[in-house]
Write a protein that binds this DNA or RNA. Structure first.
Lengths: 227, 227
DNA sequence: TCTGTATAGATTGTATGCAATATTTTAAAA
DNA sequence: TTTTAAAATATTGCATACAATCTATACAGA
């Protein structure tokens, strides 16, 4: 009897790599994901790719059009607002849970992540900054210890990256974010009120930099236009 | 050019029928779902069944064991507590949204649903009662108008049914639930404070009837016991 | 009786092939 | 030149077949 292989199912690995590519804006919203191309890129057959795509579709990162294929989702402005409303509801709870549960080691993991973000910012690697910013919130959710909230945030964060790709002013100066580090400080100090306040401020900050209005063309619902 | 067929993808239909069976406790927690059996039951090939199963696994209703197959999930007591914590966080927000958005027609839909629940209760059809009780909360989430929250509740409600199947005292007298109808009354009256209070009370009520303690044997995590 | 091993059977994992559908290209007509 | 129609190409949807893996049974030895 051997050790139960801890290797993740290959399908999830594929989905994860596609997710990373989306988070880094290397796969822009709306782009078509052709099964055969992905299959040869990953060195597997279409069967696995299909399963990975249905998985990503379930997460909302990919949209499946019957008989037409898979596309990276283009969230509407309305969906973007719903997403941030959900995050404003959930992330304060995450902060509460982390403060009440986190060990020294957890705090250390957070600080280590902050260092990675700093490094990316120092290099001006905007793509990595965005991905790491998302992963910061996913790490917080993980430390909160509620698997349902963790899973929800694992879906919302990549989608947030997509929304930023679509609606962020192109020349937003790479966010002056010591915001993450201040949140970690408040958590480490067990200062719940401050931590929650900073988190909500941070979310508002991200949302407000988006140009969610004045782009009605993006929101046209072609399917229902004529009937 | 014809109308884009509004027929749901067949895979989702299969997943939905399996979900209903789970909600009605016709597929008990832990049971194995053999692909071939399902394939012939639904009259399709294993390929589609597999995709439906990965979808259900993503929702958490089914657990996939590599090379061993798919099983209806057996939530642990700890997961059950996390689930209710999540619902206590989300459902008050749902109530708020519904109160501020719901039209007369939406309220009518809620009342119609209550009638179905009454009918099931009058017939003593416990299975249908449980499924409809779950669907009541899913309907509320739908009316709240936030797709992310709606999707989350669409996962949590079937799981709640599973938890009830596992942990509910077998002879719990079919819940004396005018609780749903009182929630709808408060919503219709736009009485936010009361509606939220009733909702939280309702959730506590469900959770407290569960025997989440004193059954440690269910929670043993065999995989991590020795290393 | 119990334990361990070998064999047979069942089930999952994956690739491949073909039919159905969509997209692009080409050519013809306005 | 623009529009329309038809053929050619590309892509998805699905079922099936085979290999890999797991499970159950049978049997030998302690």
């Amino acid at each position: 009897m051997e050790t139960t292989s801890a290797t993740k199912p290959a399908i999830e690995q594929i989905a994860e790599r596609i997710t990373d590519a989306v988070m880094e804006h290397r796969l822009p919203p709306g782009i078509k994901l052709v099964e055969e191309k992905l299959a040869s890129a990953f060195g597997v057959s279409r069967t696995k790719i299909r399963q990975a795509l249905t998985l990503l579709a379930q997460e909302g990162l990919v949209t499946l059009h019957p008989n037409r294929g898979a596309f990276v989702t283009r969230p509407t402005a309305s969906e973007a607002r719903d997403l941030f409303a959900t995050r404003r509801l959930v992330e304060p709870e995450i902060v509460r849970c982390v403060i009440s549960r986190a060990s020294e080691l957890d705090i250390a993991r957070l600080r280590e992540h902050l260092q990675q973000e700093d490094a990316a910012r120092a290099e001006g690697d905007r793509r990595r900054i965005i991905r790491l910013s998302g992963r910061f919130h996913m790490l917080l959710a993980e430390l909160a210890g509620n698997s349902f909230i963790q899973k929800l945030m694992a879906e919302l964060c990549p989608l947030t990256c997509l929304i930023i790709a679509l609606y962020d002013a192109p020349q937003t100066p790479a966010c002056p974010e010591d915001e993450h580090s201040r949140i970690v400080d408040a958590i480490a100090a067990q200062d719940e009120a401050t931590a929650i306040h900073l988190m909500l401020h941070h979310l508002k900050h991200i949302e407000c930099e988006l140009k969610l209005d004045a782009m009605p063309s993006r929101d046209i619902h072609w399917e229902s236009l004529y009937g």
